[in-house]
């Protein structure tokens, strides 16, 4: 019986060793994105945009043309590329500090303009590359180097739920949140990424896939425990699911009836 190749490196990934910490889930997410690019047959016309953050060197890992953006501006850079070359498949790969803090204006307006690009948003609830500072997505009470007593929501507010926030925009889009801390979650994440890239390939809409990710190094726990922590702490606050599809309409407003207080009009 002849040997069958059942598992290999995706063509969209370079054969290099990454700089990511042991147990970090960036590697999985890179792989899922690369598999989707391969499966859709778009590698030769894909351009990625790396952020500033842990994945700043993503351009070394993907076997596609790449831009390295300044901090938070990847969606603006993606807009420039896509508008110059609508035939290209353009994706950004951004972390939570990059996208949800310094780059909030760029991501909201890129989504709102309905740029036909795909955003892979990796949320690990911490600034990884700079050494574990508080992120806009750090959970209440979670310890970080700039909130050593845990995130105080009275001082720092609550963590930002990006998928929910972007999904409030009226412009048609595909917005979902996934995770990669279990094999099943990773399989689902890939299906969602594939949907996101497909919407772009078909010229349908903007797409954003938030991927919950671990940071064993800065969370200060072994990888397996980090996956457990993600399940127990992040998933309840950041529910997984599809928040918006281009086929879906407006979100219905909550009725005012029954509300007490100064805003009541009747």
């Amino acid at each position: 019986m002849a040997e069958a190749l059942v598992f290999s490196r995706p063509a969209a990934l370079e054969s290099v060793i990454t700089h990511y910490c042991p147990g970090c889930t960036h590697g999985i997410i890179h792989r899922l994105v690369a598999e989707v690019i391969d499966e859709l047959g778009v590698r030769e016309r894909t351009v990625g945009i790396a952020p500033v953050g842990c994945s700043v060197l993503a351009y070394n890992y993907f076997a596609t043309d790449f831009h390295e953006a300044s901090h938070g501006r990847a969606p603006a850079v993606a807009t420039g590329i896509k508008r110059a070359h609508p035939e290209l498949i353009v994706f950004t790969y951004q972390g939570d500090g990059d996208l949800a803090s310094i780059g909030m204006a760029e991501i909201v307006h890129c989504a709102n303009r309905g740029e036909k690009v795909t955003v892979v948003f990796v949320n690990n609830a911490i600034y990884g590359m700079t050494g574990g500072q508080m992120a806009p997505t750090t959970l209440p009470g979670q310890i970080a180097t700039t909130c050593p007593l845990g995130r105080d929501v009275n001082l720092a507010g609550y963590p930002i739920r990006v998928a929910e926030l972007i999904s409030t925009l009226r412009t048609p889009a595909f917005v979902a949140r996934t995770a990669v801390h279990t094999p099943l979650a990773a399989v689902q994440a890939k299906a969602i990424l594939r949907r996101a890239f497909t919407y772009q390939k078909e010229g349908t809409c903007f797409s954003l896939v938030e991927v919950l990710s671990t940071c064993p190094t800065n969370w200060g726990m072994p990888p397996a425990e980090a996956c457990q922590w993600l399940e127990e702490h992040m998933v309840p606050y950041y529910p997984l699911g599809v928040f918006k599809t281009p086929e879906g309409g407006d979100r219905a407003p909550r009725p005012l009836e029954g509300e007490e207080g100064p805003c009541r009009t009747t």
Partner: peptide, 16 residues
Amino acid sequence: ESEVAASNMLYGAAGS
């Protein structure tokens, strides 16, 4: 949405 974004769009388009 801002000059920050506009100039980074330039960066993207010029790079391509």
